[in-house]
Write a protein that binds this DNA or RNA. Structure first.
Lengths: 152, 152
DNA sequence: CTCATGTAATTGACACGTCAATTATGTATG
DNA sequence: CATACATAATTGACGTGTCAATTACATGAG
């Protein structure tokens, strides 16, 4: 056994770069599709998806942030922009005067309905169709291993 | 043979989400490390790396953009910020009066020198060490398949 | 030479993300 | 109840990214 290297080898570094650059490129392409198909950013989509699935199409701001794994300030800024566009609304919370409830607006629901099929189709075309069943499985396991490792 | 589905299955979609969210989380963690270790963003690092490896520590702006795969306007904005911080300089190009040459400044070279080992260590700890040899290999193949597919 | 067209790089406007500070309200403790 | 501390959400400042427009120069056809 050799002692554990502290720095990655050239090959390891190459894989890292391919990994991170490919994910970034894919994110950009999917994002551009969503934008041109539906005038939504990935952030808009995540918010609308969460609200669409929520009880009464409404959610406490903090819960929403936790659900989609965003910092609260990021969500505040984003909700401000989405509110200006009429996609969502904000109401005072009855049980906690500090709180706010985010409500899916009619326009938001409609835009989301129109966005979902094209978006899923894009995911299929650009991600799923690029991989064999084995590769898809491997991708899932790699992601799980990375996720588990990063939490420590 | 069943006809090809146009939408991903629930499992495929789950893998997609794990893939893209994990990559994003990893990018954020590595980025935060780089920031706190060396006061550099990933963009800064990419620019400084390219210039460090370039002939004479200088490069035409367009070539640099192509090398790191950025849009030129993005690079212009970024170079403006880096120039304000004294990390790089810009000079007129001798052979083409339209052109600009980006030059690694002394301060930039020094910051980069200090950044590289901690950054590579972070890549090793957070990415390489999380994966078995087989998983690392699989990650490379998945990235290659996705890259090949997206170019068409 | 000159005019049309292409290329190098920058700029402005605006969306997005992070961090630190702020405002307002809840809650526990003496 | 009063004070201290925690929590909900927002705000401001600033770095980052994209798109469309702009400036300045190069170059080839006539």
């Amino acid at each position: 056994m050799t002692r554990k290297r502290s720095l990655p080898t050239a090959d390891e570094l190459r894989v890292w770069r391919e990994y991170i650059e490919t994910a970034e490129a894919l994110r950009a392409v999917i994002s551009a599709r969503l934008q041109s198909d539906s005038a939504l950013s990935p952030g808009d989509y995540a918010v609308l998806l969460a609200l669409s699935e929520a009880e009464g199409h409404r959610m406490r701001s903090s819960d929403l942030a936790a659900h989609i794994n965003w910092e609260r300030s990021r969500l505040s800024h984003h909700l401000g922009r989405m509110e200006r566009r009429g996609l969502i609304g904000r109401e005072d919370c009855v049980t906690d005067s500090r709180g706010a409830e985010v409500v899916l607006a009619a326009a938001g629901a409609e835009v989301f309905r129109g966005a979902t099929v094209p978006h899923l189709r894009a995911v299929r075309e650009l991600f799923v169709d690029a991989l064999t069943a084995e590769q898809l499985d491997a991708a899932g396991q790699v992601a799980a291993a990375l996720r588990a490792h990063v939490r420590s």
